[in-house]
Write a protein that binds this DNA or RNA. Sequence first.
DNA 1: CATAAGTGTTGATTATATTAAACAGCAGGA
DNA 2: TCCTGCTGTTTAATATAATCAACACTTATG
Lengths: 183, 183
Amino acid sequence: MSIDVGAHLKAVRLMYGLSQRELAKRAGVTNGLISLIEQNRVSPSVSSLTKVLAGVPMTMADFFTLDLAAKRPVFFQRDELPDLGANGVQQRLVGSPLPLRSMSIWHETYAPGADSAERVVAPPGERGGVIVRGRIELNVGGETRVLGAGDAYYFRNSLPHRLRNVGREECEMVSASAPPPNP
Amino acid sequence: MSIDVGAHLKAVRLMYGLSQRELAKRAGVTNGLISLIEQNRVSPSVSSLTKVLAGVPMTMADFFTLDLAAKRPVFFQRDELPDLGANGVQQRLVGSPLPLRSMSIWHETYAPGADSAERVVAPPGERGGVIVRGRIELNVGGETRVLGAGDAYYFRNSLPHRLRNVGREECEMVSASAPPPNP
DNA sequence: CATAAGTGTTGATTATATTAAACAGCAGGA
DNA sequence: TCCTGCTGTTTAATATAATCAACACTTATG
């Protein structure tokens, strides 16, 4: 039995917080093609899928090795969590990156000086979290606060927001994001 | 810089001693298509290439990881082994760093307090090893044991697992992991 | 309410993969 | 020599992938 190329591509794309048009632009294909592939209405050529994956980026080998159909485990240990962060932000996704999850939970670690400004995963929805260790500066919709261990936040993802570790120590937090109540 | 699909297909086909027509018949495609693919005059669709490979048989994942199977050395000196470890774990891979290999063998050294860092996407398969020196705490699927020199372990890679050196001395082990046996 | 920018989807057109069938070549045998 | 059966290749017809441009929808802004 062959893998579900469409579901895989969608999962991979959402893992990286990309829209169809963003990915299409990076990959040098049209957004319509990505839509059709994700719906399994076409079977892309190897060259096309290679181009598309290069926009993520991901190799064909990794793409076909990913096993999304595997039974989802219940318990997750720290080092099994995939790190999707960048720029000094370690951003570990709790659980497998299936698109059908009702929410995403993250275990994040911000190095001193780390800044989320560039790479915020911002699909429409809401987002909240609790600071576990260290301090972090959070700006939401123009309002800025510095939060410490035990503090928390919750806001709509559509608001412009930015997380910065302005201290000298790492900041660790657990956050979650969910799509709007009625999909 | 994608892999050479045509050359790969031809190599795989000849490895199994199949003619283009034999493979085509098994795969349910025409011999002409295989000829064109092998000459890189077309870029097959994912569905077509999947069908073709099913005639070998071979999975897409294996096909696209076949890349570095070129000239593989036989002997390795200690300092040649690439260290892929982190967090106090020295994890030296025996042999070339990528498939197509039937298994991976590791020479690992856990510093006191070291904690294993599993790969993000753990391929399905099995894993085992033998402790050579020191002691290590192994947790597999919620069950924890402390293993010493001469002890060993073996488990399915899909189970959550974690290795920690909870002692005061280094722990050295040799381990191996392999994909599930082909049907 | 109107506008703009964002999302994913879709129909018609164009480009390309795939088929079906014929081709040229090579080997061994009557 | 002409078979018979195999190899891989090629051409024209057809099926399908990929594009382009528009659509409907949501969210934010004036």
